[in-house]
Design a protein around this nucleic acid. Structure first.
Lengths: 231, 231
DNA sequence: TTGACAACATACTCGGTAGTATGTCTAATT
DNA sequence: AATTAGACATACTACCGAGTATGTTGTCAA
């Protein structure tokens, strides 16, 4: 709503330069909401949407429900805010790869890597996105919030389409080979998304370590699509 | 408990010969429980464990809570029963592959295919297994049921170890190549498990169609591990 | 200095759901 | 024929958690 000018402006991330936790794209959320979103994402990841109570989130914040309901109309509202921010992260890192001047395979590789790294660096948010798409949010009987859910799924779908386009280009170049495009894309995404579930930050971990993990996932996915260990 | 003799005895499935829904391994469950388990699995998959009420399951059964609580002590008890049956399915189809007289890669291929097909054919059960391992079942504050959860996770872990052994053999043969074994196994499993989430039976679908899907997943996973389209 | 409003905290309501207690009906047993 | 027990249905309780209503405190403008 308010044209709030943030210090870092629009996130200008090149592939791999992922926004850190807490650096949420400008203009999307008010200042006081960031902590809430972070903690909510953590809780949703740890226990799932349904079994996370607002009081749980409040406890993690060291405050009470009042603070949360001051900013968010409902539990579902809070959840969708988290998920939408998660999708913003993804678009922010993948978009630059789309505009690269390079072959389709090369662009696809960069997109895959950027996406995967985003899964790692914004894990909690992405876990919420997943839950949202997996529709465990059923029970949002409110028509207004079903609209919100559809919007999220749609956002996710359009995002997925970005990859489809490039995959088809790459296939036309003869660079990759698959049987069924739909299945191939599902498998690629599952591979790239998988850190959402099994990634756990190690004590002395560096950004380089995370990039290494993302690289392995990307290589696996591309190999699955029939590409040599490209880079 | 009771040594109940079932018509088909122990499930003797060769790779790909997956038990159909409703054909639950003998001796595990009483007759009257099968429908309950099937419907519970359906509900847990559709809405998730937490947001599925016992009344939901009962409604799907066309009966009431009484029937469910007659057989299962609690909601968590019902859930674990579903998940454990799911794991039984997996062990039943993968075990024969382990004992095959063939190279490690070949055995791995068969295991992967059998596992993936099991994900498809017993999807609802596997979805519950997933949720159990993903610990959305937190809230099982009962110590007795935390024991049950640990047992499930342990079962899943031992199952995963079956694959690790063969993967290491295959790597020793120089047949596959990966960077980090742990990550490679995670990626392979995610690929093979993925039908749990996106598979949806088509109207006129045949067993052959399902095997075809499983084959694509398996090929993707094996290619990801650095194997040519084996089999 | 005094409204006024944002940013919370506190205290309450109310519906949904897990679990229980009890009733009913049928089939097998003796 | 009477008894028992399994397989449910019905009716109820107790609690938890989402949402609300209202109070409190600090800050800033006029």
């Amino acid at each position: 709503m308010s044209a709030n000018a943030s210090p870092q402006g629009t996130v200008e991330a090149s592939a791999g330069d992922v926004p850190a936790l807490g650096a949420i794209p400008a203009g999307l959320v008010e200042e006081g909401q960031i902590d809430i979103l972070n903690m909510a994402a953590q809780c949703f990841m740890a226990r799932g949407y349904a079994s996370t109570s607002i009081d749980d989130v409040a406890r993690k914040l060291g405050s009470t429900k009042g603070r949360i309901y001051h900013f968010f109309a409902s539990k579902a509202d809070l959840f969708f805010a988290v998920a939408e921010v998660g999708m913003q992260f993804n678009y922010a890192v993948v978009d630059p790869c789309l505009k690269m001047e390079a072959s389709a395979v090369k662009r696809l590789s960069h997109m895959a890597f950027a996406h995967c790294l985003s899964m790692i660096e914004t894990q909690a948010y992405q876990h919420s996105v997943w839950q949202g798409v997996e529709i465990h949010v059923r029970g949002s009987t409110t028509p207004e919030q079903r609209e919100r859910l559809n919007a999220l799924i749609d956002s996710r779908h359009r995002y997925s389409e970005l990859f489809r386009t490039v995959m088809e280009e790459a296939a036309a170049d003869g660079a990759i080979g698959y049987d069924d495009l739909g299945i191939a894309r599902q498998l690629m995404f599952m591979t790239l998304n998988s850190p959402i579930f099994w990634y756990k930050p190690r004590p002395g971990e560096t950004a380089h370590d995370r990039r290494n993990i993302a690289r392995q996932c990307t290589n696996f996915a591309l190999a699955g699509l029939g590409i040599e260990a490209g880079r």
